[in-house]
Write a protein that binds this DNA or RNA. Structure first.
Lengths: 135, 135
DNA sequence: ATCGTTGCGTTATGCTATAACGTATGGCGT
DNA sequence: ACGCCATACGTTATAGCATAACGCAACGAT
């Protein structure tokens, strides 16, 4: 599921992406760093530089509300559409989804106010079905 | 007790709120601290504790994507509805707006996936009309 | 009175992110 | 080949954001 061909990733970029892919939830930059120490990673910048590129390629998303990163769930169709995230505050699992209506409404607001969007963040914090039922 | 009236603000809370109110754009916690040093503020925690309460009262919003805070534009009707923000990356100005359709669509997604939302973040980064036209 | 709650002040610490330096590599035109 | 430039990399240091943990003070309720 993960390694389809993209613009060829460098070693560091591939390692960071793999770390995110094999994680069960979002990871902070320092958590990624820790998981890659045995691969030779020594400093945060190595992680951040790789993340910058992966974000640019659309292979990774940044979750602004928790300062963490996830591998894109649909890396094939890297439609640059606005994506929403539902983040479970208990188990950390993230669901990624798009909604054209939401996108349209926000786009309409922007047009009406002559605002030129560059990036839109939509993040729903809460509890997933399993965690909500467990209390 | 989700009543309408919030308790009287403490001195520190009032000072932090005033700092945000009189600012032209969002402020980081340390920027707030700097503006309140001559009022006796010495440590970040004084700011963060006040902010926690102000957020709870709905008098202040946190902008997740820039780690900053703004006074609520409509403090009277602190409808706890989902609010969206448009943030100009050049001049820093923030527009605050609500959209029932967006809220409905996200709420529908949540229901369909049995996700229990606690807080929803919607932030549009970009350039306001004035800044976009200036390049 | 004493207990619990809330706010406050201070010090110390942790987490998140970037600046600034230098090195290495690879493509490309001449 | 050579110089040139762009990109990635490694390292150290620093900036920026946020909380832990201690103790004290004020106040209201039992």
């Amino acid at each position: 599921m993960a390694g389809t061909a993209h613009p060829e990733l460098t070693r560091n970029q591939a390692l960071v992406l793999k770390a995110l892919d094999s994680a069960e939830g979002p990871l902070g930059a320092y958590a990624i760093l820790d998981r890659l120490r045995d691969k030779g990673f020594r400093a945060p910048l190595q992680v951040y530089r790789a993340l910058d590129k992966l974000l640019e390629f659309g292979l990774v998303h940044r979750l602004e509300s928790i300062n963490a990163f996830v591998a894109c769930a649909h890396p094939e169709c890297h439609a640059h559409a606005t994506i929403a995230f539902a983040i479970c505050d208990k188990c950390g699992r993230v669901s990624e989804f798009g909604d054209e209506d939401v996108e349209d409404r926000l786009g309409t607001w922007a047009k009406e106010h002559k605002f030129k969007p560059t990036k839109t963040t939509i993040e729903i914090r809460g509890f997933c079905e399993k965690c909500a039922s467990e209390g």
